[in-house]
Amino acid sequence: MWYKRTIPLILVFAIGVAAFVQEFVPAPWAGRFRENITLWFQIIGSFALFIGLYSLLHMHWTRIRRQTPGWAYSIFVFLAAGGMIAVGLYNEGKGPIIDVAQGTRTWLDRGYDYLIKPCTATIYSSMAFFMASAAFRTFRARNTAAVLMLVAALVVMFGRVPVSEVLGGWLGDPEMFSRITDVLMKYPNLAAKRAIMMGISLGAIAQSLRILLGVERSYMGGGD
């Protein structure tokens, strides 16, 4: 138990305190400490990547083996992963690690630009529909608070489109709606945001302290 609990807790405390102290020290040793910690993190992370890859491929292989509904899609995981790994290793005939000449577009670049990027852009653009359906549900005037939010949201949305200047012009001030929008965003909205941010910061500090003092230990895979 000593090596499984006590040593990790001592390490967590020592590294945690050192990480806190280095934040206030400009001397190069603090920078070197941060670099080393980052390096260790990357080394451990690279091992974890194999666990992640194994987890992903194992799950999809199980789906194919058991022929669960939609198992054929799992074949694409192997094709896509294998394809990208292959072109990455091929590296325009130079093999792994070697840099290709600057400006050369490798097959890996093409795979990223012509397959991954368009897919990502498609998913991102579909967010507009999700946003519309979420807004439709939220902006129902069910009670006073909901009415207030609805009015504020309409004003902010209206103040950010050019037609608001036309309507403002008819009312005597083309900038009227954009100014109201600015006031709403700068004061009530920013105040609420900052309050949440402060709460998050305090919560994160308290959580860190619980971890450093060994009060919170469930992240180590055990109970409390």
Partner: peptide, 19 residues
């Protein structure tokens, strides 16, 4: 869970005095 409530969760759920 808004803001710090996320960080309060482990303490809240465990009900352990120190937490």
């Amino acid at each position: 869970l808004i803001g710090e409530e996320l960080f309060a969760a482990s303490a809240y759920l465990s009900r352990e005095p120190k937490m």
